[in-house]
């Protein structure tokens, strides 16, 4: 049994490595900036969705407020850079840390709530953050913050014309989230979290400490989400509350994971690979002229996938979810 599991987990590493190589090579033959941008955004959202998956999928806490951690990460690294000259390569980690910290602060009250009460509380907390940033002049208020260009540099994560460095940056980010998820799946923590997700009371009786489990998942999830926000800020060069903290963004982060397959290693990536290009392409081809057709299409896809593939798009590939809870065979 143990053998089988390690063999499967090693297999996943190999698949991951192959996909990584493909993604490293992917942009090389692609010259046009539009397509490269599309790929970058997709990979970024793949990483963000995986970060969400760590809390929402493995631990089962449906957060609809991840936009907050994303925005915090973006603001922290940007302000550190603009005000104090801290290079974004460092600021990125600072943004992640603060994002994780905020996730803990949010989790402390919210994890006492369950089900819909929890989901709505996360929406509200994110909305509070959004409103505060919108009205807080120190962080630029509604005007936002421009990130001055100081020359191509890996330390400042700035590249005026090139897209390729950003491609590798987001790829590294997404890979990190994937590895985190992979490690969690095989660890004691992953086991505890799945137990919390399946049945809180049963988890308690198995000796799982429920609240700390949720907090740990939230911290890791918030860390990566904040990091993603910081990367996004450097990529776009301008941030404001609407583009980094809007409630809609929280949905965009959660959606690939949910429709791809929650609590699975590949679901968030698959979901992002399908949904992000769909949303970007439909916006650029249908959004302008069709006025709303892009939204209709997007909404329709969400509804159809959710109903037709409740286990997520990964189920199309016959990737079976692991059996639930104790029967899992993970170390206990």
């Amino acid at each position: 049994m143990d053998n089988l599991i390690t063999r499967r987990r090693r297999g996943e590493l190999w698949i991951g490595a192959v996909i990584l190589v493909v993604l490293i090579l992917l942009p090389l033959p692609i010259a046009d900036a539009y397509t490269r941008n599309l790929i970058i955004i997709s990979i970024l959202f793949a990483g963000l969705a995986q970060a969400w998956n760590i809390l929402g999928g493995y631990c089962g806490q449906i957060s609809l407020g991840h936009s907050l951690y994303f925005g915090i990460g973006a603001y922290v690294s940007t302000l550190l850079f603009v005000r104090l000259g801290v290079p974004p390569l460092v600021g990125m980690f600072a943004g992640g840390l603060i994002g994780g910290l905020i996730a803990l602060l949010v989790g402390w009250p919210c994890f006492r709530l369950s089900g819909h009460y929890y989901a709505i509380a996360t929406v509200v907390v994110a909305e509070i953050g959004y409103l505060l940033f919108l009205n807080w002049d120190f962080v630029g208020g509604a005007m936002g913050v421009y990130i001055p260009f100081k020359g191509d540099s890996w330390v400042a994560l700035q590249f005026r014309t090139q897209k390729l460095p950003y491609h590798y940056l987001v790829l590294a980010f997404a890979t990190a989230t994937w590895i985190a998820a992979w490690v969690i799946e095989g660890s004691r923590w992953g086991f505890s979290w799945r137990a919390v997700k399946d049945d809180v009371i049963a988890a308690r009786s198995l000796g799982v400490r429920v609240f700390p489990s949720k907090m740990a998942a939230a911290a890791i999830s918030g860390f990566f989400t904040g990091m993603g926000g910081a990367i996004y800020a450097q990529y776009v060069g301008y941030i404001d509350p609407d583009s980094t903290m809007n409630g809609q963004l929280a949905i965009l982060i959660a959606l690939p994971a949910v429709l791809g397959g929650v609590g699975t290693l590949w679901g968030p990536f698959l979901g992002a690979a399908v949904l992000t290009p769909l949303s970007e392409l439909s916006r650029s081809y249908l959004g302008g002229s069709g006025r709303g057709v892009d939204l209709m299409l997007y909404g329709l896809v969400i509804v159809v996938v959710a109903l037709a593939r409740p286990a997520g798009l990964v189920s199309l590939f016959g990737i079976r979810r692991r059996p639930k809870g104790v029967a899992d065979g993970s170390p206990a």
Binding site: A119, G290, G292, L295, Y298, G299, I302
Partner: peptide
Amino acid sequence: VQIFVTFGLAIFIRGAAQF
């Protein structure tokens, strides 16, 4: 599924109204 079906519906309706 329940959450995101109604979410999808919301986005669809908003798009339709805009259209």
